[in-house]
């Protein structure tokens, strides 16, 4: 079984996206990056991101990640913010009772986007 299936597939992503986005919006370390964005569109992007992190279908390229976050890097997005997002992903999966070994795998996938997201 793939990681995506083990975590619970699309149903898991749907459950995770609300919890994750709530955490992000309440996280004072990063929520100011989200003050002027459309919540529904942002949630769709986060769903796509979580789907990828959970090992699911995606077609993001490193280039997409760079382009999509360049305006945030210009506003000071750095490793500390990326770390905060990683924390929120892990906390979300913990809240959904996903086993630790699967959380570690999802975290590794999310971590692999760090340099592209931060434009390094």
């Amino acid at each position: 079984m793939s990681l995506y299936e083990e975590i619970g597939g699309e149903a898991a992503v749907n459950a995770a996206v609300d919890i994750f986005y709530r955490k992000v919006l309440k996280d004072a370390r990063i929520n100011y990056f989200f003050t002027d964005v459309d919540m529904v569109r942002q949630a769709a992007k986060q769903k796509a991101f979580l789907t990828m992190a959970f090992g699911g279908p995606h077609s993001y390229t490193g280039e997409d990640m760079r382009k999509g976050h360049a305006h945030l890097v210009a506003r000071g997005l750095n490793d500390s913010h990326f770390d905060a997002v990683m924390e929120n992903i892990a906390a979300t999966l913990t809240e959904l009772n996903v086993p630790a070994n699967l959380i570690a795998q999802a975290a590794a996938i999310a971590e692999s986007t760090r340099n592209d997201v931060l434009g390094k």
Binding site: A44, K45, K47, A48, T51, G56, P57, H58, S59, Y60
Partner: peptide
């Protein structure tokens, strides 16, 4: 289009 995987609804 964006994710092309049925997720983003773009």
């Amino acid at each position: 289009a964006s994710c092309r995987a049925g997720s983003c609804q773009t």
